[in-house]
Design a protein around this nucleic acid. Sequence first.
RNA 1: UGACCGAUGGUGUAACUGGCAACACGUUUGAUUUUGGUUCAAAAGAGUCCUGGUUCGAGUCCAGGUCGGUCAGCCA
Length: 556
Amino acid sequence: MEANEHKSLNFIEQIIEEHNRTGRFGGRVHTRFPPEPNGYLHIGHAKSICLNFGLAQKYNGKCNLRYDDTNPSTEEIEYVEAIRNDVRWLGFQWDGEFYASDYFDQLYEWAEQLIRQGKAYVDDQSAEEIAATRGTPTVPGKESPYRNRSVEENLDLFRRMKAGEFEEGSRVLRAKIDMASPNMHMRDPVLYRIKKEPHHRTGTKWCIYPMYDFAHGLCDSIEGITHSICTLEFEVHRPLYDWLIEQLGIYHPQQIEFARLNLSYTVMSKRKLLELVEGGYVKGWDDPRLPTLSGLRRRGYTPAAIRHFADKIGVAKRDNLIDVSLLEFCIREDLNKNAPRTMAVLHPIKVVITNYPEGQTEMVSALINPEKPELGTRLVPFGREVYIERDDFMENPPKGYFRLTPGGEVRLKYAYIIQCQEVIKDETGKVTQLNCIYFPESKSGADTSGKRVKGTIHWVAVQEAAYAEVRLYDRLFTIADLSDIPEGKDWKDFINPHSLEVINNAIIEKSLLQAKPGDTWQFERLGYFCTDPDTSHEKPVFNRTVTLKDTWAKMQ
RNA sequence: UGACCGAUGGUGUAACUGGCAACACGUUUGAUUUUGGUUCAAAAGAGUCCUGGUUCGAGUCCAGGUCGGUCAGCCA
């Protein structure tokens, strides 16, 4: 596919190829995916994962998985395992699996080195005082009264911080840069803080922990990362990233920033996702309505579709809002080719074929997947009574409707053409049964009836029907752009109250009772569905991944 | 009256680095079809944020503006 097809380079590939030309990294490409283990991965992370691992593959390089675990108060082992599974599920294998905490000793040494160089100092101010003296983007900050302590005093204090002599919040280590810098991140940023909390990997060894800005670039340096790819909000951190590495005189990777993914009708921030989960708006991190990888997986999205999506959206620096219809296109494309077909009826009406012999059944032959005829056929039981979709019958059809109508004819897919002769209703006027006749010579594959019908509908034979729970999902929000909330409104005001519809007694073919969690299907004419982990032999449960395109529904 | 970044059809990304603005999604139309699916064919839709400059020629270079985003955690 990518063999001799010349695809233009994205801006990161252009930078890499420029580096390769000039020999800055000796032709090496080594990236890393650096999640913080404090939440689940979402499709925005998938963009970053595909980018980082994809670059490594493309340039014959390497990509590490590195947990950015510098804050023990929010991070948990549960998340590192979930992240590992998600990355693997997406289809990537990292070269090295590392943790920022692996490097705490080295990081500490470098902090002492900075102190010895007179480039860092221990500040006794409180967090509030530091905030108050940092200034604003337009007003310079004020230097700390502790800024000019001697190297010896700083070293002593920092070592005692490490030894646990001081309370949390009483002291921090700060870089000594420039309190008047127009870049807020250069105004003596905090490098280390005291946290008397056990860490999921280092236990109680440490009671001081490095800040992101201090740790990240230095970890990149240790691992020999060439291109440290991160999102746009870190752009203003880059001068600090570079400053630390230069002061220390160590190997210098290149940080490159790209625009994070935004998807229409959903939220992507960890904070909001967490709020949806904890507020009970959804049923967990793997709720199929969420853009988390675990949610998408449960919804029936495949790794290949997500990778293809990541490829199609491209990489650039401008803010973007990708239309979900592109994601839906990617999963339909995959499932159309790969999902076996079956028939299910979500909202049934019973059809009785009055001229079909009572007690008779027969097996009709159906394609497993018309996109892959080599997969062959399956046998579907047919009989005198079948269920059809309520939508596939209309008593007073509009122009252009070509399904079943009183006196009208349709084909029951893979079986016979039927004609509706009688409509039976209950006392409320609801249609409860259709009496039809069939044309024996119209059987699929052996049709000598000469009849032509416009419509073909799906069905399930009554005597072979089983029941299932089917969960229909819709977009989680009612507005496309969640970054643009009207004045006085909260983003949660736009949660779609109809994002989940549960059908308790959908009709399926009995053969589907064998379905295993994760199996994907196309329910003919309805959409793609995936067996949910909640499924059981007694009560199969299916999630609708996405509907089929429906040009008729669009016309209505 | 800060610093940094960005601006190309409805959406996203391109434009071989100064040479007829292309591709994908979406939309519309037609053909095929035993899924109103798929497939195939076609169309509409931007003259590249604005103003000026350089040039035979500017989306691309220069100057000035406008609009949008990010940054004031001992979060990442």
